[in-house]
């Protein structure tokens, strides 16, 4: 494992912890898209089907359990926790899941490295992860006011994706035959979706002002 991959995993972990911190301690999920969180739960459930069959390392297994556990518990908090669910912006978070799920599934059935059940679902999880942030970005545009924790959550998620790109570049030059077009293109697209957000995030940070997206 190289430093970029590790930094990516740690920013990903930090993003989840920031979100859980907000939900668990402040008991609020204002500004957080349940649609995005449900999509992430589907992403991890379909990607980590190999968790009990293919052992890579203790680190990998542990992190997979963390991402599965955290994504499903965030969904549970937002849907079922009697205090947290009251702060959910239900009327603003109207993005339809299946507009993203169905095309990703169809695309994964056409474009994949091997046409097997697990490989197609693994590819589906990559495509879905690439676009899963969209309901969250739409919700941010609508509510416009972003609290610090929500802003940091999205920033850390974007940083995780950027570190993964550096990880692929590093692996491409250091490992023979390391070429994986599908995760690379899906990952690049995913990172680009954060571009706009990054711009406003750094802008507000530089000017020491509250993060606000333009109408």
């Amino acid at each position: 494992m190289n430093i970029f991959r590790f930094a990516g995993d740690m920013t990903h972990l930090a993003s989840v912890l920031v979100l859980l911190l907000k939900i668990h301690t402040i008991k609020s999920c204002a500004g957080v898209s349940l649609k995005t969180q449900e999509l992430y739960a589907i992403v991890f459930a379909t990607r980590y089907l190999d968790i009990f069959t293919d052992f890579i390392s203790l680190y990998n297994t542990f992190m997979k359990l963390v991402f599965l556990g955290s994504s499903f518990s965030i969904v549970w908090y937002m849907r079922s926790h009697k205090i947290v669910r009251r702060s959910y912006d239900k009327d603003q978070d109207t993005f339809r899941h299946y507009f993203l799920i169905v095309p990703c599934l169809l695309l994964a059935m056409i474009i994949n490295e091997k046409f097997t059940f697990r490989e197609v679902l693994w590819t589906f999880s990559l495509f879905l992860e690439a676009v899963a942030i969209l309901p969250q970005l739409v919700l941010l545009q609508r509510t416009r006011n972003i609290d610090n924790l929500t802003g940091q959550y999205i920033f850390l998620l974007g940083a995780y994706r950027a570190f993964y790109i550096f990880n692929w570049i590093y692996r491409y030059f250091t490992e023979p035959h390391y070429v994986h077009w599908i995760p690379w293109i899906a990952g690049l697209l995913q990172t680009l979706l954060y571009g706009d957000f990054f711009y406003y995030y750094f802008h507000s940070w530089k000017n020491n002002k509250k993060l606000q997206l333009p109408a």
């Binding site: 890579i56 991402f67 693994w122 599908i182």
Partner: peptide, 10 residues
């Protein structure tokens, strides 16, 4: 048959 190397990532 071993897993593709990309599957060792999260």
């Amino acid at each position: 048959d071993t897993e593709p190397k990309s599957h060792d990532e999260l």
